[in-house]
Design a protein around this nucleic acid. Structure first.
Lengths: 213, 213
DNA sequence: CTTTTAATGTGAAAAACATCACAAATCTAT
DNA sequence: ATAGATTTGTGATGTTTTTCACATTAAAAG
């Protein structure tokens, strides 16, 4: 199958929008409305669905329940997703409190840090444990997914620990390129880079508008 | 010029890596080392630079100082970037404390919220003000960039306020597609979707490995 | 000074991705 | 039942992005 990161991101957005449509009482939807809701085009929507073997009915559109169910399956929403968090600093503490994860069936089972001052804190019933307990914890709970909220300097080391423990995919917030073995996935989100992006395009717009005016 | 989001993201990463190389005492660099450092290829690096009129010397590579300076110019690093934040919830509070922004010359000048219980809190010398003071504040300080850390339900409304006040680019954390007039930029980062992405590819890997084994 | 070596810069080629456009299907109205 | 309207599913087409490959150039060695 021919999927990429953007495509899966769109799947998440479709699912999100569909839940809103469902909440509004709709039971069927056409590709163009869904496209509008996520800022895409109807052919893109249909292509994406076709890629995953998701079919609607001609003239009748797609059943929202049916779509959501299939997207749930694709995105792993039919089981609770167990996650560990490394790094209980500013970012880590915020992620533990973040409602979006639990709302989406993602559960941070524990947080890990090297700073003893943080041990045994409990937020949202999530405990902070010493980093050296990460490996047994991950193995015991059969966890595949990790979140890296540690400083840049420690990120590669902690990622290596995670991978050694059995983690197969990581969401990383450190502004650095991480190396991991084949078969493992790292998705890096760097907030300062995301903001730099906005700044760049705002400046670029200003320049071209200046030319146009 | 022909740039896109990914391209600018790479620019941010190049800059990051170059600062590390500089910190290690290097003064020149070749495209292949830089590529390694950011997880790209040497031809991609050279194409990117060429696109922005950044040139090295054949056989001699690129001067790190010179590169950093040009990337600073492109990414707006030569001036302090003033930003406002809307929404002082869990995410907003974390962003105010986030070191990565100030480290990169991004300064959140004030935060805004509708909840009076949050007014006049001060963290990192950033004050929380009533949302209706956003417009005069933005105009007075000539701010072009905003961060949206408000709940999904409020996001479009607050974005409209920002745009009316003169904000031209927004980093949005709400899991929803926002509409804004032409000439404005919205970059949405949805943490739960980023994690869903990781989960999807981990599952996908497991399946294909199962087949291969 | 000349030769050798090694890295850049960039058209050309390839790959990845998105859009178009239309046949096929099916719902609605008569 | 039949006709008409409308939406899907998908090959074909177009566009964007990445990779290739090599002429060009500059450093280093002889």
């Amino acid at each position: 199958m021919h999927t990429n990161k953007n495509c899966i991101q769109r799947m998440s957005r479709y699912r999100n929008a569909l839940n809103r449509f469902k909440g509004l009482g709709f039971s069927k939807i056409f590709s163009n409305y869904l496209a509008d809701a996520v800022g895409s085009t109807s052919s893109q929507v249909r292509k994406d669905f076709s890629l995953f073997g998701i079919y609607g009915s001609k003239r009748g559109g797609y059943s929202i329940d049916c779509l959501i169910e299939q997207l749930n399956e694709i995105l792993g929403k039919n089981e609770l997703q167990k996650v560990v968090l490394a790094g209980f600093g500013n970012m880590g503490a915020a992620l533990v409190r973040y409602k979006g994860f639990s709302k989406e069936g993602i559960s941070i089972l524990a947080a890990f840090d090297i700073d003893p001052a943080k041990y045994n804190k409990r937020i949202n019933n999530i405990e902070v444990l010493p980093l050296d307990r990460l490996q047994p914890f991950v193995q015991e709970h059969q966890i595949k997914i990790g979140i890296l909220g540690v400083p840049e300097i420690a990120a590669q080391h902690v990622l290596d620990l995670m991978v050694a423990a059995g983690i197969r995919g990581v969401l990383n917030f450190a502004p650095i390129q991480l190396k991991c073995p084949a078969g493992c996935v790292v998705n890096s989100v760097t907030l300062e880079h995301e903001l730099e992006n906005v700044i760049y395009f705002v400046n670029a717009n200003e320049k071209t508008e200046g030319v146009a005016a």
